[in-house]
Structure formats: C-alpha cells, structure tokens
Nucleic acid binder design. Structure first.
Lengths: 166, 166
DNA sequence: GCAACCAGTTGCATAATGCAATTGGTGAGG
DNA sequence: CCTCACCAATTGCATTATGCAACTGGTTGC
C-alpha cells in the first residue's frame, strides 16, 4: 500500500486507491449493508476480514478521502464511518462488478438477487440509490419518491430469498 | 492468488478474479492499446510490469476464461492473446473506473482524454467499442457504421493531445 | 553463424496479508 | 465501586504476493 505512482492513467490511479482485495468490500458493506462502525464491518461481513486489515483499510480510505470518521455521541469509543461524495460515486463500479460476477461466476442465490435487481435497474436505479446514500451518509436531503426506495427494494428482495430458502 | 473462496457475493467473486493490482491493467492494454503479444504487454505499458508477474497474470486469466492464447503463425514462439466474451464484458468496469479516476485523481492530460471521451460516450459508446473488440478478438463480423469507430475515435483523440503537447 | 528477438523461468529480497492474542479504554447493571 | 460485556484498534509472528535482475532455451533474419 505504498504511494509510488505507476502512471497517470485513470484506471491505474483508481486501482491504486481501491484495487486491493478488501477496500471495495468494505465500501460494499457500508453501502449495501449499512455498516457504519468498526465492529459491524468486522463481524457482519461474509468474508471475515481481520481486525488489523480492517483498521489499515479504514485508515487508508480516510486518507484518500473516500470515507470520513466521526465520533459516535452515544459512546466515546465508537466511531461512525461515512462515505464521502467520492465514496458514493464508487457505486457504479461496484454495480458493474456485481453485474459481471452475477453473469459469469458462481454467485449464491441470496446474494445474487441484489445483483440482478441492481443490474436490471440500470444507471437510473444506481442514481436513485446514490441519492439515498448521500442522504444517509452526507445528510443531504432529497425529494422522496413514492413507494420503497432503491435500498429498501434491494433489502426486501434479499430478505425474501433468505426466508424462502429456510 | 489462491482459489480459497471467501463468499458467494458477486462483487467479492469478481474481485477474486480481477481484484489484484495488475490483471485489469493487462486487460486495459489489450483493449485500448491492442497489445496482443507477451512482449508488447511487457514493454509497451506505462506502468512497467515485470515479466514474472505478467506471465503469472496471463496464466491466471487464461485459467479463468478471461483470455485465450493462440500460436502466432508468423513466429513459432509468439503467442497471440485474445479476450473472450467474458473479457470483453469487463469493459464497463474499466469504463467506470476510468470515469471515477478522471473525476477525482491526478490523471495526466494525454491519458485523461480517453477517459473523458469514454465517459461522455456513455453505455452506448461502450457497446460500440465492445462490438469492435468482439470483431478483433473473437472474429465476430459486425455491421460497420459510417465514420471512425469508437476505438479509432479514442486513439485519434489521444494522438491529438500527444501531438499538441510536443 | 550470429545478433536480435521471443516467451517465459529462477533466485532472492521486500511488502502485503492473515491469524490469534492482547491492549487500553467505555458503559451498563448490581 | 466493581465486574463484565463491549469497543476500536494494536502487536507478534507466519504465510503469501509482489518486484527486480539475471538467465534459459528457443526462433528469425541477415
């Protein structure tokens, strides 16, 4: 995780920021799982990140301006991590990765449903979800649409599959 | 680069395939730079990959079905690497990374122009470019449109900036 | 025959990742 | 107060990945 810059190519630069095995998974959990505390990110992820790696990634993401950290008023030791605008705008990358993985890799049924909805929803749904993220992470008020939000639709679909599989 | 699967999440699975520091750069050079031989990928990239890493990545990408390798009839030792359909469909991921990097990171002028065009062109241009890649890498004939192709437009814009900067 | 080219491979050093245990502190209940 | 569960990390150590330089065994053109 050195700063040694390899080239001025936008793809390369992006990979230098989020091109490791964990950063985008942390972002994913913050976006889709609404994990905002260290402990939540540590224990409630499917992949089982270890605490030293998580601490290191959060630190790096902070330095790079992808997330911010605030003290939780309810607990002096708790920190709340939030996505910045830059962080929110990583969603399309995740959405494309999700779509590609869904199409070509052995995705589990529970986790695939989100990918399918997100892919079918296309850029319009992504924009809606990004607005939702701006509200929860950046405090930006937005015009509410009728019916469940993009995030709620994704969550509901996921829970439906989980319930059916039991 | 082990196969140990961490979870059935599509994003995680995608990261396990192309989530290292080099794989996507190799794909990028095959797509945008039309590098098809080992030596081209080794010497004509801005980042300077070393030969053992390149050999390892090409092997992995072959195993994962992202690229194929054929013997070059003009030279017994030369191999020609081609993208598979799966490989071609990584373009939207690269395009989104390119757009994000262009927006938030210190991209060089020469390399930024491609990112800008690609971003402005949107999914429609990406689809056109993917068709072009299918033709050059998979031999799929396509209906030619009038005027320069997406790839040609990107290349022309790049060369124009390079010429101006001299 | 020889120099330039070709696709890798090998040996070794450094950096990143992973696991388990531990640290230093907080907050709620008794 | 005291204790116990919780909290955000940190430390030590092993394993794995990456990076560099030199090298191998072969091909091609002159």
């Amino acid at each position: 995780m050195t700063d040694a810059q390899r080239s001025g190519c936008p793809i390369n630069l992006t990979l230098e920021v989020v091109g490791d095995k964990w950063s985008l998974l942390v972002i994913r959990d913050m976006m889709f799982g609404n994990r905002r505390h260290f402990r939540e990110l540590l224990t409630k992820s499917d992949e089982g990140i270890s605490s030293n790696i998580l601490a290191d990634r959060l630190k790096t993401l902070l330095e790079r301006g992808i997330i911010t950290r605030d003290d939780d008023p309810s607990h002096k030791q708790k920190g709340i991590y939030s996505l910045t605008e830059q962080g929110v705008e990583l969603l399309p990358i995740l959405a494309q990765m999700s779509a590609w993985g869904y199409k070509y890799l052995p995705v589990s049924e529970e986790l695939g449903i989100r990918a399918r909805l997100l892919s079918e929803g296309g850029p319009k749904m992504w924009a809606e979800f990004m607005d939702e993220l701006r509200e929860t992470h950046l405090g930006v008020k937005r015009r509410r649409k009728a019916g469940p939000s993009a995030g709620e639709r994704l969550q509901a679909a996921y829970e439906k599959v989980v319930a059916r599989k039991k």
